[in-house]
Nucleic acid binder design. Structure first.
Lengths: 190, 190
DNA sequence: CCACTAACGCAAACCTTTCGCTTTTATGTG
DNA sequence: CACATAAAAGCGAAAGGTTTGCGTTAGTGG
């Protein structure tokens, strides 16, 4: 069902998927996302519209796939020497990227064309991965660390909630304050 | 722009809006949301498709409006006699309603057809209203209460995040645990 | 190297969306 | 209360997007 789990992942299928994804990114950059149409995308990618409809079902599922790709972190979180600094820095970066107009669009696209929640789950998995990297490093340093889920629930979730439902209440200090709350209130004491 | 802020809210416009909304609800119940089409909706509502397109722009904005309407709380939160009980009961109810398949659909519909975030903001405003009702009652009883934003950030946001991004990690106990965390860790001490 | 079949291209049928114009009807004013 | 004004709805046609069946191409495994 999902285009990600293609039964025949090599060769032409892979080329078509890459070409279509690239076409979506190009056309999104040139015109708005609102004006995207499947025939335009297909033409740019050098395939026929029916190919796109067959593989993705409709345009929102295609946009969802492309959005998830763009929300994938490109680099591991910075290592600043302490858990507190790493988390604050990562949270500020995450918030800045996700709360930007393009970031919010990608998040909403990822959610919209995603009936079974697979793509949204992938977004969350990216954040878990980044957080775990920071926590593993801190553990290796011998620091006491909070649970991954504590950070997801009380740092990531509040930021995402405000991004989606309460725009206008966001700045870097908010991200830092959430990390501070985890440190002073929610972290298991040694 | 938004159909909610109609320049001419009375009479025929209001009747058309009600008829269209009712048609959407009926057709959603009869067939799936995937099979909804504007001409079907218009026909059921006794208007022409062009009327729907003119007022709502496209079908996702219409679905967003209808979804927000369905997410409006119908009753104030139950008064069980204490802040703790009121919050736990409300959180469990909220989670159950929002995490159900129809609830998740409405949330995603509300987010999808909502470029400026107005409808999503309304959803959040409903939750704020319910929480404030509980907090005001507790204050009147003389209880110490947390901030509204503390509850939004650390009870509502984690639930919504899991509903949207991490389905399958949800049960009533999770809602109660979030309230417990606020009580033992995040509430200002008297 | 061959058989098998998923995936693609093509084209026709169908449906959705938009546009210009006309008609209806709230709403405010004399 | 009648009238003027303009917002909103109706209508039909044209443009464009979506869906589907069938033949062909080209990965994949034996």
């Amino acid at each position: 069902m999902s285009p990600k789990a293609a039964a025949r992942p090599g060769g032409r299928s892979a080329r078509v998927q890459q070409a279509v994804h690239a076409a979506v990114r190009e056309l999104q950059a040139e015109h708005g996302r609102a004006e995207l149409t499947v025939p335009q995308i297909a033409s740019r990618a050098g395939v026929t519209p029916s190919t796109v409809y067959r593989r993705w079902g409709d345009i929102s599922e295609l946009l969802s796939d492309v959005a998830v790709e763009r929300l994938r972190p490109e680099t591991p979180p910075a290592d600043l020497g302490s858990l507190r600094e790493d988390l604050e820095h990562w949270a500020v970066d995450f918030l800045e990227e996700m709360s930007s107009p393009p970031g919010r669009s990608y998040i909403r696209d990822a959610l919209a064309g995603d009936p079974d929640g697979g793509n949204a789950g992938q977004c969350s998995a990216y954040a878990v991965e980044q957080v775990d990297t920071i926590l593993d490093r801190a553990t290796a340093r011998g620091e006491h660390v909070p649970d991954t889920d504590t950070l997801m629930d009380h740092v990531v979730a509040p930021m995402m909630y405000r991004i989606l439902f309460r725009p206008g209440l966001l700045d870097a200090q908010y991200a830092r304050d959430l990390v501070t709350t985890v440190f002073y209130r929610l972290m298991p004491l040694p």
